[in-house]
Every structure is written in structure tokens, then in C-alpha cells.
Design a protein around this nucleic acid. Structure first.
Lengths: 196, 196
DNA sequence: CCGCTCATGTAACTGGTTACATGATTTA
DNA sequence: TAAATCATGTAACCAGTTACATGAGCGG
């Protein structure tokens, strides 16, 4: 383990001057609406829930306030139609929203976006010497098994849906599969390196 | 783009019954203290800041309250020594904390830990058809360039520190490098698939 | 004695989470 | 007609962030 000699002052110095663009999830939601055409908050939630990433839960408590914020910021608007005793809001991306979206999908890619990669499994491996060898083996075996089945799941789904998916959806899924394969290889390597 | 037919009810049904173990960052901090031996909050922050992952900033506003919580939960304690007019707290992992740590590093690995993988770059690629081809190319070129230099950075640092790093640190770093390599391959593939 | 590093902390905020609550529509 | 699905939302909470504020020790 290396002794980290970095000084803390350097931590604070990422000079970005509050541009207040949409956050990651907000951009994602804008993109979803733009692609599906006008749709309700519920449709967005359903999309998020169906996506394999599970990074965002698509919970109501996140989406409804977020859509209000998109409207407030001028990135989206909605048409309200009566729906029983209630109302129903169909959201659309405004031209300003489309601009923000274009910015989200443009070079130069801001700091952190290309760097950001967090794997809680890897975080654990860094500290695996804190448990006895027996536990290490059990941990790695389980990690390998879980990664393997997750990879299989992704591959099956891709084959299943191959015909109905567009190119960019396929590219995205390919990226996830490549990452999982790499992780599996890596875990197997670590496992093999263990002393008998 | 597939029409996600998953029902939302399924979203809420991840049956975990509030075990209230340490969170990811809390476990990580426990592991850091355990490995370095007794240390101050500042040392933990410095470690986090030096780690290449950048997932956690190691900000004071996170670490100091977190350490209080660790103490409250019985996972850590501290020795307070006078330090000028102030005091200085040296934290240690308690045996209960060590138990929690052992659990963190044990099979079975809970749901989500092995699945969780979020790449904001990949999220963008899913929606890259929303911008004109010219922008797509620029985006991918930048993504490739940034990933390449990040990979180089990691590899250099590994070589530089190879002698002072222990096995598990090396394994962890290898994992990050593998992931970045896979991402780079993938991005290049996507780039090549673009029509002239 | 100035500036850097070591060190400790608080305050206000944010971007989510889970859990709750309601009601309309469709389908078996 | 009961159950599932579609749909909209709120309330309480939580883990982190940035920004601020303070002070000790040390080297030039």
C-alpha cells in the first residue's frame, strides 16, 4: 500500500464556474423524451426501470420533481390534458432543451465524465488482504459467479432483442458486455494468483 | 430502441430488511483505518484524495460526520490527545468494526455490488443518434483520446509504484486498467463502425 | 513573520432514496 | 368485480457535495 502524499489543497482546485447545465440524470431524461417523442413521466420511469444499468432507480420521488425542474429551466414543456378527475402531463423537449442535449453529446467531454468509473467489487479487492485466505477465495469465487451470470444475462438479452434494437442501443449494450468480460477476466486472474 | 415493457411494480421489490450495516464509503473508511493502523480523519481524507478513483472526494464535510457515525455505531473508537488549544482524534477500528469489515469482504456478495456499473460515457453513446454524424465523430474521438490518456496515466503510475505496492493494491489497479482497456477497444470499435 | 501543510470542523444545499397515498383504466 | 397496470404525486430522509471558518506547527 502506497503512502499517499498528495496534499489536500489540490483537491479543491477543479476550476469550473457554475454553468448550471442539466445534471447527468436530467440530460438522460431529456434524451429519453427526445427519442420517444412526447411522453409522460411514467413512461420515463418505465424506461429507466427497464434499462439494465440500475444506476438510477427511476423512482417517482426523483422523476416528478426532476421534470418540474426541467420545465422551470426551460428545457422541457408539457401539455396538460384532463384525465378523469385528474390531469395528465405529456412532456416535450424544447429547443433550448435540445441545445442542452446537443451540448451533453458533444466534444469536449468535460472532466470526470470519461474518468468516472466506480466498481464496488474492485474497491473490495483493494482490501482483500484484511480477511484470511479462505474468505478471499470464497469472495472471489462468488464475484466470478455473479459476474458470469450477469454477463450471460446481458448477452442473452442482446441476442433476443437484436432485431428490434437500433445501432446505438446495440453499441451501448456492447460497451456493457465488454466491461463485464474484462471484469470477469480480471477476477479470474486474481483468483489464479492466489496461493494454494 | 426497444420499448421497455417491464412493469414498475417490479422495481420496488428488492427484499432487503434493513440490516443497517455500514455503507460503501463507511466500509471503505474502516478498511483504510484498519490497514494504516490508527490514524486521524485527515489521513483518511488524504488517502481518499490520492486514490485514482475519484468516486469519493474525501471532503471534510463527508469524513468528519462519517467518523462520528462509525463511533456511534461501535465500529470505531478514538483516542483524544491534546493538540495546542484543540484536540486531535486518532481513530481505531474496534472488534465490532472488524466484524463488519469481514462481512463487507465476504461471500455472498449482496445484490447490486457485482451488478453496479455506471459509465456516463456509455450512457451518452446510447443516445448519440440524437446529434448529427459530425458531432458523433467528434464525441467519439474525444472519448477515445481521454480514455487513452487516462489509461496511460494508470499504467505509468503502476509501473512507477510497482515496488512499493502490495499484491492487493496491484490487483485492484490491474482491474481499473483492464476496464479502461476494454472501454478503449469498445470506443474504437464504435468509431470504426461509423459510416464515412 | 509569511505561507504552506496538518488538522478539525460546521452550514447550507442537492440529488437522489424509500415509503406512502391516491385515483383511473384495462383485463382476466 | 377483483387484480393488475397506468399515472401522479408527497413526505421524510440520507449521503454526499461545496464553501466557509478556525487554528497549530514548521520551514524559509
Amino acid at each position: 500500500m502506497v503512502n499517499p502524499s498528495t496534499i489536500l489543497v489540490a483537491m479543491a482546485s477543479s476550476g469550473d464556474q457554475k454553468q448550471a447545465g442539466p445534471t447527468e440524470l436530467e440530460s438522460c431524461v431529456l434524451a429519453i423524451i427526445e427519442r420517444r417523442g412526447a411522453c409522460t413521466a411514467y413512461a420515463v420511469r418505465r424506461y429507466l426501470a427497464a434499462s439494465l444499468s440500475s444506476y438510477w432507480s427511476g423512482s417517482a420521488g426523483a422523476i416528478y420533481p426532476l421534470l418540474r425542474k426541467l420545465v422551470r429551466a426551460g428545457w422541457a414543456d408539457f401539455e396538460e390534458t384532463p384525465f378523469g378527475t385528474r390531469k395528465r402531463r405529456v412532456y416535450r423537449v424544447t429547443s433550448k432543451g435540445n441545445g442542452a442535449l446537443g451540448h451533453w453529446l458533444s466534444a469536449p467531454i468535460p472532466d470526470g465524465v470519461a474518468a468516472y468509473t466506480h466498481d464496488p467489487l474492485r474497491a473490495r479487492v483493494f482490501f482483500l488482504d484484511l480477511v484470511p485466505p479462505r474468505e478471499r477465495r470464497a469472495f472471489l469465487d462468488d464475484a466470478i459467479a455473479q459476474t458470469k451470470s450477469l454477463l450471460a444475462l446481458h448477452q442473452e438479452e442482446r441476442e433476443e432483442l437484436a432485431s428490434e434494437l437500433d445501432d446505438w442501443d446495440l453499441h451501448g449494450r456492447e460497451g456493457a458486455i465488454r466491461e463485464l468480460s474484462a471484469r470477469l477476466d480480471w477476477l479470474r486472474g486474481v483468483r489464479r494468483a492466489l496461493p494454494k
